[in-house]
Amino acid sequence: MSKFMYVFRGGAIATTGLSPTEVQAHLKKWYDWMGALAKAGQTHPGGGRLMGEGMMVRGHDRTTTDGPYAESKDLITGNLIIEAASLAAATEIAQGCPIFEFDGSVEVRPIHEM
């Protein structure tokens, strides 16, 4: 098995105008998905839970700016490390992620084994 990192961008967190019930219903979908992953022994929980705000330090000059740093659909909203047999398998697992309900994206990146 190899390790992969999912980098989440956009999704419900970057969507405005959701009702409290919609937010809670969406959270439940994450729990269902995470529960299914955990059952399959795939998760390394503790992946990043990112707050909405932050700072950006960029370039030779270390130019420091407030967030948001990207369009909301490109905003990194979290990450998760999973185990899978191959990049193709990890990509397949990502298909079930609830982030797509709100048009988010999952970048699937293999992690070097040290």
């Binding site: 937010v23 839970r49 909405g52 979290g78």
Partner: peptide, 15 residues
């Protein structure tokens, strides 16, 4: 209030 709920969505995704 909306921010607090969205923060919860983000912070609680893993539990």
């Amino acid at each position: 209030v909306q921010d607090a709920l969205v923060s919860a969505l983000s912070a609680w995704q893993l539990g």
